[in-house]
Protein backbone atom coordinates (compact mmCIF):
# COMPACT_ATOMS: atom_id res chain seq x y z
CA UNK A 1 0.00 0.00 0.00
CA UNK A 2 1.26 3.44 -0.88
CA UNK A 3 0.05 4.83 2.42
CA UNK A 4 3.24 3.30 3.75
CA UNK A 5 5.15 5.56 1.41
CA UNK A 6 3.04 8.64 1.07
CA UNK A 7 2.42 10.56 4.28
CA UNK A 8 -1.21 11.63 4.68
CA UNK A 9 -2.02 15.31 4.46
CA UNK A 10 -1.97 17.04 7.79
CA UNK A 11 -0.68 20.11 9.54
CA UNK A 12 -2.12 22.28 12.21
CA UNK A 13 -5.53 23.49 11.20
CA UNK A 14 -6.24 27.16 10.96
CA UNK A 15 -9.58 28.00 12.37
CA UNK A 16 -11.10 31.04 13.87
CA UNK A 17 -12.87 34.08 12.64
CA UNK A 18 -10.97 36.35 10.37
CA UNK A 19 -8.12 34.01 9.64
CA UNK A 20 -9.23 33.58 6.05
CA UNK A 21 -8.54 37.23 5.51
CA UNK A 22 -5.86 38.04 8.02
CA UNK A 23 -3.84 34.96 8.84
CA UNK A 24 -0.83 33.81 6.89
CA UNK A 25 -1.20 30.28 5.54
CA UNK A 26 0.70 27.80 7.59
CA UNK A 27 3.32 25.82 5.73
CA UNK A 28 3.12 22.08 5.90
CA UNK A 29 5.85 20.35 7.80
CA UNK A 30 8.55 18.75 5.70
CA UNK A 31 7.41 15.20 6.35
CA UNK A 32 3.94 16.01 5.00
CA UNK A 33 5.18 16.94 1.53
CA UNK A 34 4.89 14.32 -1.17
CA UNK A 35 8.19 12.60 -1.55
CA UNK A 36 10.23 13.82 -4.47
CA UNK A 37 12.83 11.40 -5.64
CA UNK A 38 16.41 12.71 -5.62
CA UNK A 39 17.35 14.87 -8.63
CA UNK A 40 19.79 12.19 -9.67
CA UNK A 41 16.91 9.82 -10.54
CA UNK A 42 15.60 12.16 -13.23
CA UNK A 43 19.05 12.24 -14.83
CA UNK A 44 19.32 8.45 -15.00
CA UNK A 45 18.75 6.76 -18.38
CA UNK A 46 15.09 5.68 -18.68
CA UNK A 47 14.26 1.98 -18.79
CA UNK A 48 14.70 0.51 -22.29
CA UNK A 49 11.66 1.11 -24.47
CA UNK A 50 11.70 -2.38 -26.01
CA UNK A 51 11.24 -3.84 -22.50
CA UNK A 52 8.73 -1.30 -21.20
CA UNK A 53 6.40 -1.19 -24.23
CA UNK A 54 5.00 -4.75 -23.90
CA UNK A 55 4.88 -4.51 -20.07
CA UNK A 56 2.91 -1.26 -20.08
CA UNK A 57 0.58 -2.49 -22.81
CA UNK A 58 -0.06 -5.73 -20.89
CA UNK A 59 -0.76 -3.64 -17.80
CA UNK A 60 -3.34 -1.34 -19.40
CA UNK A 61 -5.00 -4.23 -21.27
CA UNK A 62 -5.32 -6.15 -18.01
CA UNK A 63 -6.75 -3.03 -16.37
CA UNK A 64 -9.50 -2.86 -19.00
CA UNK A 65 -10.30 -6.54 -18.49
CA UNK A 66 -10.43 -6.27 -14.70
CA UNK A 67 -12.09 -2.83 -14.39
CA UNK A 68 -14.39 -2.25 -17.38
CA UNK A 69 -16.59 0.01 -15.21
CA UNK A 70 -13.69 2.46 -14.83
CA UNK A 71 -13.38 2.83 -18.60
CA UNK A 72 -17.15 3.12 -18.93
CA UNK A 73 -17.23 5.89 -16.32
CA UNK A 74 -14.77 7.88 -18.46
CA UNK A 75 -17.26 8.02 -21.34
CA UNK A 76 -16.00 10.05 -24.30
CA UNK A 77 -12.96 11.20 -22.33
CA UNK A 78 -11.55 7.69 -22.82
CA UNK A 79 -10.44 8.73 -26.30
CA UNK A 80 -8.33 11.66 -25.03
CA UNK A 81 -4.53 11.49 -24.96
CA UNK A 82 -3.31 12.07 -21.41
CA UNK A 83 0.26 13.02 -20.58
CA UNK A 84 1.24 11.66 -17.17
CA UNK A 85 4.42 13.44 -16.18
CA UNK A 86 6.18 12.16 -13.06
CA UNK A 87 8.47 15.16 -12.80
CA UNK A 88 11.14 13.35 -10.79
CA UNK A 89 11.56 10.45 -13.24
CA UNK A 90 13.49 10.39 -16.52
CA UNK A 91 10.41 9.48 -18.58
CA UNK A 92 6.79 10.44 -19.14
CA UNK A 93 3.76 8.29 -19.95
CA UNK A 94 1.09 8.78 -22.60
CA UNK A 95 -2.24 7.16 -21.75
CA UNK A 96 -5.28 6.69 -23.98
CA UNK A 97 -7.85 4.94 -21.72
CA UNK A 98 -10.03 3.85 -24.63
CA UNK A 99 -12.34 0.91 -23.94
CA UNK A 100 -11.79 -0.17 -27.54
CA UNK A 101 -8.00 -0.06 -27.63
CA UNK A 102 -6.29 1.29 -24.51
CA UNK A 103 -2.72 2.54 -24.86
CA UNK A 104 0.01 3.22 -22.32
CA UNK A 105 3.31 4.33 -23.81
CA UNK A 106 6.54 5.43 -22.17
CA UNK A 107 8.56 8.22 -23.78
CA UNK A 108 11.92 9.61 -22.80
CA UNK A 109 11.66 12.99 -21.11
CA UNK A 110 12.06 15.68 -23.76
CA UNK A 111 10.79 13.48 -26.62
CA UNK A 112 7.78 14.93 -28.45
CA UNK A 113 4.50 13.54 -27.09
CA UNK A 114 1.12 14.59 -28.49
CA UNK A 115 -1.36 15.18 -25.64
CA UNK A 116 -4.67 16.88 -24.94
CA UNK A 117 -4.62 16.81 -21.14
CA UNK A 118 -1.64 16.67 -18.80
CA UNK A 119 -1.02 15.97 -15.12
CA UNK A 120 2.43 16.69 -13.71
CA UNK A 121 3.74 15.97 -10.24
CA UNK A 122 6.11 13.83 -8.17
CA UNK A 123 5.82 10.14 -9.09
CA UNK A 124 4.71 9.01 -5.65
CA UNK A 125 2.08 11.75 -5.42
CA UNK A 126 0.65 10.64 -8.78
CA UNK A 127 0.69 6.99 -7.69
CA UNK A 128 -1.00 7.82 -4.38
CA UNK A 129 -3.68 9.80 -6.21
CA UNK A 130 -4.17 6.99 -8.75
CA UNK A 131 -5.02 4.53 -6.04
CA UNK A 132 -7.14 6.84 -3.93
CA UNK A 133 -4.71 7.51 -1.09
CA UNK A 134 -4.20 11.20 -1.79
CA UNK A 135 -6.75 13.84 -2.68
CA UNK A 136 -6.18 15.40 -6.10
CA UNK A 137 -7.70 18.76 -5.15
CA UNK A 138 -5.51 18.96 -2.05
CA UNK A 139 -2.41 18.21 -4.16
CA UNK A 140 -3.53 20.97 -6.52
CA UNK A 141 -4.09 23.45 -3.66
CA UNK A 142 -0.59 22.78 -2.32
CA UNK A 143 0.84 23.11 -5.85
CA UNK A 144 2.27 19.60 -5.74
CA UNK A 145 0.52 18.69 -8.99
CA UNK A 146 -0.16 20.79 -12.07
CA UNK A 147 -2.96 20.29 -14.61
CA UNK A 148 -2.75 21.51 -18.19
CA UNK A 149 -4.90 21.26 -21.30
CA UNK A 150 -8.38 19.72 -21.15
CA UNK A 151 -9.34 20.19 -17.48
CA UNK A 152 -12.61 18.32 -17.97
CA UNK A 153 -10.78 15.22 -19.22
CA UNK A 154 -8.34 15.30 -16.30
CA UNK A 155 -11.24 15.46 -13.83
CA UNK A 156 -13.00 12.57 -15.55
CA UNK A 157 -9.84 10.44 -15.37
CA UNK A 158 -9.22 11.37 -11.74
CA UNK A 159 -12.81 10.54 -10.74
CA UNK A 160 -12.91 7.27 -12.68
CA UNK A 161 -9.61 6.14 -11.16
CA UNK A 162 -10.77 7.12 -7.69
CA UNK A 163 -13.96 5.10 -8.04
CA UNK A 164 -12.05 2.06 -9.30
CA UNK A 165 -10.19 1.88 -5.96
CA UNK A 166 -7.14 0.31 -7.60
CA UNK A 167 -4.31 -1.32 -5.74
CA UNK A 168 -1.54 -0.85 -8.27
CA UNK A 169 0.57 -3.65 -6.83
CA UNK A 170 -2.34 -6.03 -7.31
CA UNK A 171 -2.91 -4.74 -10.83
CA UNK A 172 0.72 -5.32 -11.77
CA UNK A 173 0.57 -8.77 -10.27
CA UNK A 174 -2.57 -9.57 -12.24
CA UNK A 175 -1.13 -8.20 -15.47
CA UNK A 176 2.07 -10.19 -15.51
CA UNK A 177 0.69 -13.69 -15.18
CA UNK A 178 3.65 -16.04 -14.62
CA UNK A 179 5.70 -13.17 -13.21
CA UNK A 180 3.07 -12.27 -10.65
CA UNK A 181 4.33 -14.75 -8.06
CA UNK A 182 7.80 -13.22 -8.20
CA UNK A 183 6.32 -9.71 -8.01
CA UNK A 184 4.26 -10.66 -4.97
CA UNK A 185 7.41 -11.91 -3.24
CA UNK A 186 9.21 -8.68 -4.14
CA UNK A 187 6.44 -6.47 -2.79
CA UNK A 188 7.58 -6.31 0.88
CA UNK A 189 11.12 -5.58 -0.25
CA UNK A 190 9.88 -2.80 -2.56
CA UNK A 191 7.80 -1.24 0.22
CA UNK A 192 10.74 -1.43 2.64
CA UNK A 193 13.07 0.11 0.06
CA UNK A 194 10.74 3.05 -0.64
CA UNK A 195 10.04 3.60 3.04
CA UNK A 196 13.78 3.65 3.79
CA UNK A 197 14.27 6.08 0.93
CA UNK A 198 11.47 8.32 2.20
CA UNK A 199 12.90 8.44 5.70
CA UNK A 200 16.41 9.17 4.42
CA UNK A 201 15.20 11.96 2.16
CA UNK A 202 13.04 13.49 4.87
CA UNK A 203 16.03 13.49 7.19
CA UNK A 204 18.21 15.06 4.50
CA UNK A 205 15.62 17.76 3.81
CA UNK A 206 15.36 18.53 7.53
CA UNK A 207 19.14 18.81 7.82
CA UNK A 208 19.24 21.06 4.76
CA UNK A 209 16.39 23.23 6.12
CA UNK A 210 18.27 23.50 9.44
CA UNK A 211 21.47 24.50 7.68
CA UNK A 212 19.62 27.10 5.58
CA UNK A 213 18.00 28.57 8.71
CA UNK A 214 21.39 28.75 10.46
CA UNK A 215 22.95 30.46 7.44
CA UNK A 216 20.02 32.88 7.32
CA UNK A 217 20.40 33.68 11.04
CA UNK A 218 24.10 34.33 10.55
CA UNK A 219 23.42 36.62 7.60
CA UNK A 220 20.77 38.49 9.64
CA UNK A 221 23.17 38.81 12.57
CA UNK A 222 25.89 40.18 10.28
CA UNK A 223 23.45 42.68 8.78
Amino acid sequence: MLDDLYPPPGGKAQTGPGDALDGAPEARSENQKPLRLPGLVRRLPPPPGFLMAPLLQAFVTSLLKRHPEMFERLGDYGERRFLIDPVDLPFVLMLVPSPKRPLLIMKNRGAPVPWQAAVRGPALALLAMAQGEADGDALFFTRDIVIEGDTEAVLALRNALDDAALDLFEEFEAAFGPLSGAMRRLRPAAVALFEGLRRALTQLERLKAGADTQNGDKATARA
Binding site: G11, T15, P17, P25, R28
Partner: peptide, 24 residues
Protein backbone atom coordinates in the same frame (compact mmCIF):
# COMPACT_ATOMS: atom_id res chain seq x y z
CA UNK B 1 -11.91 17.45 13.68
CA UNK B 2 -9.69 20.46 13.22
CA UNK B 3 -6.26 18.87 13.27
CA UNK B 4 -4.87 17.65 10.00
CA UNK B 5 -7.70 18.91 7.79
CA UNK B 6 -5.94 22.07 6.71
CA UNK B 7 -4.21 20.50 3.72
CA UNK B 8 -7.54 19.26 2.38
CA UNK B 9 -8.86 22.81 2.40
CA UNK B 10 -8.96 25.26 -0.47
CA UNK B 11 -5.85 27.42 -0.32
CA UNK B 12 -4.84 25.17 2.63
CA UNK B 13 -6.82 27.58 4.82
CA UNK B 14 -9.91 27.25 6.98
CA UNK B 15 -12.45 29.57 8.47
CA UNK B 16 -15.57 29.39 10.64
CA UNK B 17 -17.16 31.61 8.02
CA UNK B 18 -20.15 33.65 8.98
CA UNK B 19 -21.23 31.37 11.86
CA UNK B 20 -19.27 33.76 14.02
CA UNK B 21 -19.89 37.14 12.59
CA UNK B 22 -16.51 38.70 13.21
CA UNK B 23 -15.58 37.82 9.65
CA UNK B 24 -15.32 40.76 7.24
Amino acid sequence: ATDALSDLSEGSRQTEGVYRKTWR
